[in-house]
Design a binder for these strands. Structure first.
Length: 692
DNA sequence: CTTAGGG
DNA sequence: CCCTAAG
């Protein structure tokens, strides 16, 4: 049995738009946030507290993992109805506007859109959560846009879906347990058991029930469709909840749609950013973790204080306390900050230039994924111990603090708050923090003084712990591509897509930082000097969106590109190519084209630039575009490193060829549409293709 | 996620 | 290189 469970709780701010919404919506959101975030908090807090206060492993089994109130020590795991599956990481997704909108926000606003594209990405499956509210089913995690309609749709889907139909269908469609994932994710093969009730019939049991504590995880064998909200209820719970209820515990932007007063899920965010982070990293390459400088946040704090009196509640304190083992205080502090922020509105109004006080809160606390392999007949106690070990390992490296502004990770520690866009009068509620364990590696010596606390997150993804499994492979292969820019931070990531051939940069980083925790110390900069740097509202914003550095294609890269394109073609045509000549196969061609039309550049990428992490297929496409253009213009007009004419010639010919093919395909399309008119329906894509 | 195309 | 529409 493999319990593969991510403790991937991002205590993200979720948004409940002002003046909205139906109480149930809020309650759903809050509950989820609490259930998950709090679990993460409590677990970590407890762990950290014990860990750092010097308590030995002997006490570790006391750590509450999952809802330990129902976990009976030494009880075989299976009898617990898969607790882990239940404390399903809050796969809780809200719908945010239209897909387009989500796309728009995808890269600009983690907080606001994390669920849109990412949500329960780590699991690649959807997660359904129940809620007690009015018999509605709480958000489910949806991985694709397809489920994300406008708010209204989302409303009906996510919150109104009942057990009598749509939801069931959705679940059928959306819940696709990954074979590798844990109980909640389908990997744990729970044999049929009388106790289990069919998912649908199990709904009525959930719905409308206020106390879900005892509803044992009645899940369908091998497939967990209904996720029971995990709800730790321990000390501090209430307080935290109350504080959580603060209207400030939210993040922008407000929903665009949903003017009908219906519940808009917008902004009630769940919580998985994993995928997004990975994606961002992939897209932006290593620049994502653009060079940043180590700097004492405390310094930042004091700096601000000198300017206008940064509150002493400055967010770092929870982390620091946390590290020091004052776990519960940390929690309280975190929310205390929150509570304090209730005065924020007042501050906002006082836009006097003199008062630059910024109050901040922590919106995200993520525990990286945790993989645990454990025999089915292992005891719960041993499970706890393993979790303990894992968490201990994770925490041992200290915590990284990340600063998110509108979902963007601010990595430049040298920026002043003002420069970073953190100003007292500006959308401060879009500011968040992440505290993440900063390594998967064994705890580095703690005496390394201040370092651990000052590590900043490499936004991309969190570290992962894998217990009892073989060490994660760490391939080292240096592609022969262009040199990478200077130091960037990289973590030791294991991305879900195993897209892990390290770039030269990573390789070099590995040399530099044995711990793979790249930290690039940079001398303190003169804050005053920085403060003089002029900036405008807009430039400030654009600054946050770190543009990737420009990396001109080398001739060898161009060569590789041309080669690949010659081979694979561009666009959808390549697939047709092999089939052309056989007129009878128009149907097949069509099908094929439909199936394959979107993978050319991806293939080029995989074929020729698989190792060049900084080259995305979009980059390659763009390069090809410019190459074609370059080839068409006179040599005098060309700039940059000259591309050999023979290459350009090949570009032109390849381009011509594939263009021709493409137009031919399009003619085929037309033909087909003509033919299909009035005749049989088009063969469905899924129908067996009459190829070969 | 990919492609296509404008910026 | 970015952004976004569109499939």
């Amino acid at each position: 049995m493999v319990l593969e469970k991510r403790l991937d709780y991002v205590f993200n701010g979720y948004q409940v738009p002002k003046g909205s919404r139906s109480a149930r919506g809020k309650s759903v959101a809050r509950r989820k946030a609490e259930d998950n975030g709090m679990f993460a908090f409590e677990l970590l807090a407890t762990v950290a507290g014990k860990l750092l206060s010097g308590e030995g492993n002997d006490t570790l089994t006391n750590i509450e993992v999952g809802n330990s109130r129902r976990v009976i020590e030494e009880k075989p795991l299976k009898t617990e109805h898969c607790e882990w599956g239940r404390c399903d990481e809050g796969a809780f997704v809200s719908n945010v506007g239209s897909p387009r909108r989500s796309q728009k926000y995808a890269r600009k606003n983690y907080i606001a859109t994390s669920s849109d594209e990412v949500s329960c990405a780590p699991f690649k499956n959807s997660c359904v959560d129940k809620t007690k509210n009015r018999g509605n089913v709480g958000g489910f995690c949806n991985h694709s846009d397809s489920m994300l309609g406008n708010s209204n749709e989302g409303h009906s889907h996510s919150y109104s879906g009942s057990h009598d139909g749509k939801l069931g269908d959705l679940m059928e469609e959306e819940v696709k347990p990954s074979p590798k994932l844990g109980c909640s994710d389908g990997s744990v093969e729970v044999p049929p058991h009388p106790v289990f009730t069919p998912k649908r019939s199990s709904f009525p049991n959930y719905l409308g029930r206020d106390d879900d504590e005892n509803s044992s995880g009645c899940t369908q064998p091998g497939k967990v469709n209904v996720k029971k909200a995990y709800r730790p209820q321990r000390i501090g719970d209430r307080r935290i909840r109350r504080l959580l209820a603060s209207k400030h515990w939210k993040a922008p932007p407000p929903p665009i749609t949903s003017t009908d007063g219906e519940l808009s899920n917008s902004g009630m965010k769940p919580v998985y950013r994993w995928k997004k982070m990975c994606y961002t990293r992939q897209r932006t390459g290593h620049q994502t973790c653009a060079p940043f400088k180590k700097r004492k946040l405390v310094g930042t704090c004091s700096t601000s204080t000198s300017e206008g009196g940064m509150s002493s509640e400055y967010v770092l304190s929870p982390a620091e306390k946390f590290i020091k083992g004052e776990a519960s205080d940390s929690i309280a502090s975190v929310h205390g900050v929150h509570g304090a922020s209730s005065s924020f509105a007042g501050q906002k109004s006082s836009t006097n230039s003199g008062d630059f006080r910024v109050k901040l809160n922590i919106k995200s606390f993520r525990v990286p994924e945790l993989f645990i392999e454990i025999p089915e007949n292992a005891t719960v106690g041993s499970l706890k111990r393993m979790v303990m070990e894992a968490v201990t390992t994770i925490l041992g490296g200290g915590l990284r603090v990340g600063v998110l502004l509108q979902g963007k990770n601010i990595r430049d520690d040298n920026k002043t708050l003002l420069q970073a866009g953190i100003s007292h009068n500006d959308k401060i509620d879009s500011l968040g923090f992440t505290l993440e364990p900063n390594t998967t590696h064994p705890p580095p010596p703690l005496e390394s003084s201040e370092q651990p606390a000052l590590l900043l997150p490499c936004n991309a993804s969190g570290p992962m712990s894998r217990l009892s499994a073989s060490p994660v492979p760490d391939p080292v292969e240096v592609p022969a591509v262009s040199p990478d820019p200077p130091l960037v931070i990289t973590g030791n990531f294991i991305e879900s897509d195993h897209d892990s051939a390290p770039s030269p940069l990573e390789a070099s980083m590995d040399k530099t930082s044995p711990n793979s925790l790249a930290l690039v110390p940079v001398p303190e900069m003169n804050v005053e000097a920085l403060a003089v740097v002029p900036f405008h509202q807009k430039s400030r914003q654009s600054e946050l969106v770190q543009r990737r550095i420009r990396r001109p294609f080398s001739v060898s890269e161009v060569k590789a590109l041309v080669q690949a394109v010659e081979k694979l073609g561009t666009g959808r045509l390549a697939f047709v190519h092999s089939s052309l000549g056989c007129i009878k196969l128009i149907v097949a061609i069509h099908i094929e084209a439909q199936l394959m039309s979107f993978c050319r550049w991806r293939d080029v990428k995989l074929r020729a630039f698989d190792n060049a992490k900084h080259r995305t297929y979009v980059d390659l496409k763009d390069k090809w575009k410019t190459l074609v253009h370059t080839a068409k213009i006179s040599p005098q007009q060309r700039r940059g490193e000259p591309v050999p004419q023979d290459l350009l010639d090949r570009v032109l010919s390849a381009h011509a060829y594939w263009s021709q093919q493409q137009s031919r395909l399009q003619r085929n399309d037309i033909m087909w549409s003509v033919r299909s008119c009035g005749v049989d329906r088009r063969p469905s894509i899924t129908s067996p293709s009459p190829t070969t």
